[in-house]
Every structure is written in structure tokens, then in C-alpha cells.
């Protein structure tokens, strides 16, 4: 088997004979990503209504369903209506701390069968297996959102304690709740924020996976016919809470 040393040596040997095709540099990374991230957030805080509108347009264009509610209290009603329409009641949710609010009682009051994911204490393999089976059998997955990107209609979710990746993947219907703190305008800004998280090294940067979700799962592999929900959710709903989730 080739070792790391041999492998890199073969690359260096080739690089010595190589001529650069042209003089080139990599993308300029933000020097102070945290400060730049703050500037972006401050700037967005003033223009958020226009950016939210652009998010709505792009999110709907990729097949998402958008809702705007005034306060968190209205969220269970939206979810409850989805459940009634689909005659379904199994819901898995991120842990209340990860979601920013405890919606379980209100959802249960509307007839939903709610399974809240654990806060993040180390779970034994058997327990993880059990939770996975529940998630796989659920009708709805309720999550928060770390970033909502207006340019592309994308929801960005970072995995971590109390925020399993499967909540937005296994159930056929994904419901995401967010507020203006998650809104960003462009992929370029996402780059700055990701750099800031990484430099910072605190959650959410500690998560193993960052998922960009741009609409429901889709395929066009059979005669280029667009079909939704091939492996991931067939439906993605995003609920924007005007007054903010954390009150």
C-alpha cells in the first residue's frame, strides 16, 4: 500500500516539473470573519423585510411552502393544520433547547404524537437505534434553521446536540421554524458566516455535518420527469416567526 509519505513525494516530484498555467490566487478569506459577520448581521437587521421577501420567492420557486406568523404561539396551529390535511400525527422534533422553544405541549394538544429528540447526552447504541426507528416512521420532522439564504431559497441546518440530521431527512414532511436572526442574503455571506463559525470553534461549528437544503428532495432521472421525495422529504415547509423564536 502507498504511504502518505510516498504519495505526497510523488506529488512534489511532479510539481517540480510542472509549469504554472497562469499566475493565480485562491479566494481571499475574511481576515476577521467574526467582525465581518457582525457587520453583515447589522446591515441585514435593517433590510430584513426585503430579504425575507426574496427568500420567500426563491423558496417557493424550488418547491417549498412558506408561512409568516407573528408569534411563536401560532406555529402549532400551522403544524396542526398540516397534520389534519395529511391525516397524520407522528412528529419528531429537535430538542426544545435546539429549537429555541418548547412546542411539544401545544402540538400534543392539537392531537400530534410528539417525540422530542434528547438534549445531547451520550446515548447508547440501542437507544440511538430506537430513536432512529421512531424518526424513520414519523410523518413530520420539526427543526430550527441556522441560516436561511435569500439568494437561493436555502435552509442551512447544522447537526449537533439535540439537533439530529435525520429529523430533516427521514420523515416525508420537513417543517422548519426560523426568524430574522437566521436570514442572510447571499452565498457569499454564507461563506463569511461559515468562516466565522469555524474560527470561533464553538457550536454550531462543532457539529459533524452542515446541510444546505434547497427545497424538497427531487430527481429527474426517469425521462427527465421531475419527481419529488425520492429519498428525502417530499415536502418542505418554512415558518417565519416575526417576533422571533426566543422571544
Amino acid at each position: 500500500m502507498t504511504t502518505k509519505g510516498e504519495f505526497l513525494a510523488s506529488i512534489r516530484a511532479q510539481m517540480r516539473t510542472a509549469r504554472d498555467l497562469f499566475s493565480a490566487s485562491v479566494a481571499k478569506r475574511p481576515e476577521h470573519p467574526a467582525a465581518e459577520a457582525d457587520t453583515i448581521r447589522r446591515e441585514l437587521a435593517e433590510r430584513w423585510p426585503a430579504i425575507l421577501e426574496r427568500f420567500r420567492v426563491e423558496f417557493e420557486r424550488v418547491g417549498g411552502v412558506f408561512y409568516r406568523v407573528t408569534s411563536l404561539d401560532e406555529v402549532p396551529a400551522v403544524v396542526g393544520r398540516l397534520a389534519r390535511e395529511r391525516e397524520a400525527r407522528g412528529l419528531v422534533a429537535w430538542h426544545a433547547a435546539a429549537l429555541g422553544a418548547d412546542l411539544a405541549p401545544a402540538l400534543e394538544a392539537r392531537g400530534l404524537d410528539v417525540h422530542e429528540m434528547p438534549a445531547g447526552e451520550t446515548a447508547a447504541a440501542a437507544e440511538r437505534e430506537r430513536l432512529r426507528a421512531i424518526t424513520a416512521g414519523a410523518d413530520f420532522g420539526l427543526t430550527g434553521v441556522d441560516l436561511a439564504v435569500a439568494e437561493t431559497g436555502t435552509l442551512i441546518l447544522v447537526s449537533g446536540a439535540g439537533r439530529p440530521r435525520s429529523t430533516s431527512l427521514l420523515p416525508p414532511c420537513h417543517i422548519a421554524v426560523f426568524d430574522r436572526t437566521a436570514l442572510v442574503e447571499s452565498l457569499r455571506q454564507v461563506g463569511v458566516l461559515l468562516e466565522a463559525w469555524h474560527r470561533d470553534g464553538a457550536p454550531p461549528a462543532t457539529g459533524a455535518v452542515i446541510n444546505f437544503i434547497t427545497g424538497p428532495s427531487r430527481t429527474a432521472d426517469i425521462e427527465l420527469t421531475l419527481t419529488r421525495g425520492v429519498h428525502g422529504p417530499k415536502e418542505v415547509h418554512a415558518i417565519f416567526v416575526e417576533q422571533g423564536i426566543r422571544g
Binding site: 445531547g120 440511538r128 437561493t152 431559497g153 446536540a161 452565498l187 457539529g207 459533524a208 437544503i213
Partner: peptide
């Protein structure tokens, strides 16, 4: 022709102790 594909997944190493999956 999509602005982004539906899923862009950034994976960093194996499962973290505090996470359920991976």
C-alpha cells in the same frame, strides 16, 4: 440550471459523542 442542488452536505469526520447519528 438550479441555483443550488437540493442538498449540499458538508461532512466533517465521524459522529460526535453528543450526536445521535453519523
Amino acid at each position: 440550471g438550479q441555483k443550488l442542488s437540493v442538498y449540499t452536505t458538508l461532512v466533517r469526520g465521524p459522529r460526535r459523542a453528543e450526536e445521535l447519528e453519523g
